[in-house]
Nucleic acid binder design. Structure first.
Length: 318
DNA sequence: AATGTTCTCAACCGCAGAGGT
DNA sequence: TACCTCTGCGGTTGAGAACAT
């Protein structure tokens, strides 16, 4: 004996609501309120299930609802709250007047989640992928570590492949790879080649995992910053094992981090510092001007993997 | 212009908890 | 206490729109 259905499904209409139905429901609720959803469709003359009426009202017809684009402030609120609360959409929506949990959930799933992934940030933990890899690596005994890239690849491959292939990024190998790097001479199977390169990138990230990532106050969290924040986060930094985690050092200003915007700015300036020929002072990096005039950091030598401009990060491949 | 692919978001589903009897 | 009903929540789906080829 299961519970009885909320309505006779054979006799109810489903799918998109018509303006007439909206009007009937709104008029009825304006007069009688929203008590007893089971009776509302019957009394309002609607061939709809009570649940469907409730959803239509709460997600669309309520007069206090805000329709249209989410503002930057709203997005920042969602990301910040999500880093603390997880998928508690109703709680998050309660902090955004006029937005429903459905709105917030949809916006997260279609925009914000992809945007974070595109920046190399895990949308579940709000930590950079490289940080997650290093955390996993520290829990494994040395013999297991070589297999970590393979395992991590299973988690991140799709996002990375999406990013890499969707943007039609051509890998550029300005110099020789080190001994264990994948060969680029045969691009017959582009995807497999890409996978190999990702594996290599992950292994590079792991290589730096014994560095102290907690130099700036411990756990990471995420939020958008007024002066760029995530947008300044260069995906290729995931591979930069020279200066530790840029995330912890300069980009983390969420609830559990203490790094200030000033430090962040200084370090960003440091990163952007160029020599007279336009190249970064950091070895292995080369800043080039791209298709639309924005700058792109190309990693050569043993860091060559990604070509992602700052604009790409602001507007990831979605 | 036609076709295929991807994205968006309204709507649906099933489950869990609250409250009433 | 046990059962029933209602409501709210989060995950998922699918139609239509937008975009790419």
């Amino acid at each position: 004996m299961g519970r009885i259905p909320c309505c006779e499904k054979d006799n109810v209409k489903r799918g998109q609501w018509t303006p007439e139905e909206d009007h009937k429901l709104s008029s009825y609720i304006a007069q009688h309120g929203t008590r007893n959803w089971r009776l509302i469709p019957k009394n309002a003359g609607l061939q709809r299930c009570g649940k469907s009426c409730r959803l239509r009202w709460t997600n669309y017809l309520r007069p206090d609802l805000k329709h249209g684009q989410f503002s930057e402030a709203e997005e920042q609120t969602i990301v910040t709250l999500h880093s603390v609360l997880g998928n508690r959409w109703s709680v998050i929506a309660a902090q955004l007047p006029g937005r429903t949990d459905n709105d917030v959930k949809n916006h997260w799933n279609t925009k914000l989640k992809k945007r974070l992934s595109g920046m190399g940030i895990d949308p579940v933990t709000h930590k950079p992928f490289s940080h997650l890899i290093s955390e996993i690596a520290t829990t494994l005994s040395p013999p297991q570590v070589p297999h970590l890239a393979e395992a991590a690849l299973g988690c991140f491959k799709d996002e990375m492949l999406h990013l890499l292939t969707k943007k039609r990024i051509g890998f550029q190998f300005h110099q020789q790879f080190p001994n264990n790097a994948p060969s680029t001479s045969h691009v017959k199977n582009e995807e497999n080649d890409t996978v190999e390169k990702i594996k290599y990138g992950l292994s590079r990230a792991i290589k730096g995992s014994d560095k102290n990532w907690e130099t700036n106050g411990g756990a990471t969290s995420s939020s958008f910053h007024d002066n760029g924040g995530y947008s300044n986060y260069n995906f290729a930094n995931l591979l930069n094992d020279e200066d530790g985690s840029p995330w912890n050092q300069s980009l983390c200003s969420g609830s559990t981090c203490t790094a200030g915007g000033e430090l962040q700015q200084q370090q960003q300036q440091q990163r952007n510092k160029k020599t007279s020929n336009g190249n970064c002072e950091d070895s292995g990096k080369e800043v080039v001007t791209t298709r639309n005039g924005s700058t792109t950091t190309m990693f050569n030598s043993d860091c060559v993997l990604w070509d992602i401009s700052s604009d790409d990060l602001m507007n990831p491949m979605v």
